[in-house]
Amino acid sequence: MESAIPAHLEIQRTRHKHVSDDYRPPYPSFVARYKPGVNRVVMGYFGVQYRGTSPAAAAEALAEIARLFAGEGGPSHWDRARYVDEAGYVNIVSVAYWDDIPRFDAWFMPAREVWTGKTRQDIGTFIEVLRPTVARHETLFSSLGRPEGVAVIAEGMSGEVQEHAYWGGMRDRIPLSQTDPISPGCDPELVRDGARMRVKAQDNLCLIRSGQDWSDTEASERKLYLDDVEPVLREGMDFLRDGGLAIGCYANRYMQVLSADGSASEKSYGQSWWKSLAALERWAESHPTHVKIFGAAMKYLSTLGPSAKLRLYHEVTVAAADEQFFEYLNCHPKTGMLAAVETIAA
């Protein structure tokens, strides 16, 4: 049994874990392990937004960002997903990951100008980037063999870890939590840069990407997931999308992962921005929508036991103020972190 926190990031705790040292979780889970020399990663969300039928400009923009990803300095891994937001706009988001900051910086400066530096007819574009130290980040996987998201760029996966299957495990897996309460800073602010809208977010903003992969499931398990679990998950995701601000969720996207040809895959994930890790924890532990999700998932897993083929994962980051970049061009005012802003700075 390993600690989720890698040995080179373990320090003397001043804030105690939520379980005792002899705790043994009821089922196995695993975390991504980066090379010890990697001290920072980049998570870049590059979005296209439009209403109705996909305009030609959307296809051109998606091809353009793919070319940029494939060029010099591009990411080690990227994927693409789609969802329809609360205002009825289609959003297609290409999510890219780097573990080399100088390479990203050299790539990003010209790429940013291509992406949000020019207005395209009938579409909006946005960039949401975090570049956290690995001490501000954690992952969790229900099985080995198929990493997703930022874990694809890791060196490998851990053995079975201790810090999971209890409330508080998410915080306990973040190395910074050993000594830091990770409290949120001041509220976000909006800054205009010509036609571009940039959000200056607060310290310790929280991001979660939490995914499901049912591509390996067979008929009976697939039906159980799609009929009994997914509708409850969707209900919770829709609540966060439409009413999350009241509980500290700035924005939520329930995304369908797209295959290389643009068709829908049998993978999905929720991706949301939170005022704080504590706000995310409160929703997970006690809000009726997540209690229902948790109950449906536990019933599913207890029914199938070790034979379950459904794969689950998440990645959670608590980013410092200087590790964030949010920029929007021609997007509606509830897009991403724009929903968090109440004042406009000229």
Rank of each mutant, 00 (worst) to 15 (best):
Arg24Cys: 02
Asp99Ser: 15
Val341Gly: 06
Val41Trp: 04
Met298Lys: 12
Glu138Met: 13
Val291Trp: 01
Asp193Gln: 15
Arg112Val: 00
Ala251Asn: 09
Pro175Ile: 05
Tyr250Cys: 02
Leu280Gly: 04
Pro306Cys: 07
Arg241Pro: 00
Arg209Glu: 07
Trp78Gly: 00
Lys275Gln: 15
Glu266Val: 01
Lys309Ala: 14
Ala151Tyr: 07
Glu60Asn: 12
Leu62Ser: 11
Asp227Leu: 05
Met255Ser: 05
Ile344Ala: 14
Tyr300Thr: 00
Asn91Glu: 10
Lys267Leu: 10
Glu221Pro: 07
Val84Gln: 07
Pro147Arg: 11
Gly336Tyr: 02
Ala264Ser: 14
Tyr166Pro: 08
Asp242Gly: 04
Trp214Val: 03
Lys267Asn: 07
Tyr328Thr: 01
Asp105Val: 08
Ala96Gly: 15
Lys267His: 12
Asp22Ile: 10
Gly37Pro: 00
Ala59Lys: 11
Lys35Met: 04
Ile127Ala: 12
Gly52Ile: 02
Ser265Val: 05
Ile293Leu: 11
Ala87Asp: 15
Phe325Gly: 00
Tyr23Gly: 04
Gln271Lys: 01
Lys35Arg: 15
Pro181Met: 08
Met255Phe: 12
Val161Phe: 08
Pro333Cys: 06
His287Leu: 11
Pro55Arg: 13
Ile153Ala: 03
Val152Leu: 08
Glu163Trp: 07
Glu285Gly: 01
Gln121Asn: 10
Gly74Cys: 09
Ala296Pro: 03
Ile153His: 04
Asn39Arg: 14
Pro6Thr: 01
Gly37Lys: 12
Gln49Asp: 00
Val341Tyr: 06
Ala195Glu: 13
Ala61Trp: 02
Glu128His: 08
Phe108Glu: 03
Thr116Trp: 05
Thr139Asn: 08
Gln49Glu: 10
Arg120Thr: 00
Val152Trp: 10
Leu9Glu: 06
Asp99Phe: 04
Gly47Tyr: 04
Ser307Gly: 02
Ser220Lys: 13
Val316Ser: 04
Asp203Arg: 13
Glu315Ala: 09
Lys275Val: 00
Asp100Met: 09
Ala7Val: 11
Gly305Asp: 05
Tyr254Asp: 13
Glu2Arg: 09
Trp78Thr: 03
Ala201Ser: 15
Cys249Asp: 03
Pro110Trp: 12
Gly145Met: 12
Met237Thr: 01
Glu342Tyr: 07
Asp261Glu: 14
Ile174Met: 09
Met1Ala: 13
Ser220Arg: 10
Gly194Lys: 11
Ala278Ile: 00
Ile182Trp: 04
Asp22Phe: 11
Ser286Gly: 13
Lys334Ser: 14
Val318Asn: 03
Ala339Gln: 08
Ile208Ala: 13
His314Glu: 12
Glu160His: 05
Ala319Pro: 01
Glu64Asp: 15
Ile127Leu: 15
Ala195Lys: 12
Met237His: 14
Tyr27Gly: 03
Tyr254Lys: 02
Lys17Gln: 14
Gln324Ile: 08
Ala296Thr: 00
Asp100Pro: 06
Val291Gly: 04
Glu342Cys: 09
Tyr83Asn: 06
Glu155Lys: 15
Ala346Trp: 09
Pro132Tyr: 02
Pro306Arg: 09
His314Val: 01
Lys334Ile: 03
Val95Gln: 12
Glu148Leu: 02
Val257Asn: 01
Arg40Leu: 09
Leu207Thr: 03
Val48His: 03
Ala284Leu: 10
Leu68Gln: 13
Gln271Ile: 04
Asp79Ser: 07
Val232Gly: 09
Val31Phe: 11
Ser215Ala: 15
Cys331Tyr: 02
Pro147His: 12
Leu205Tyr: 02
Cys186Leu: 12
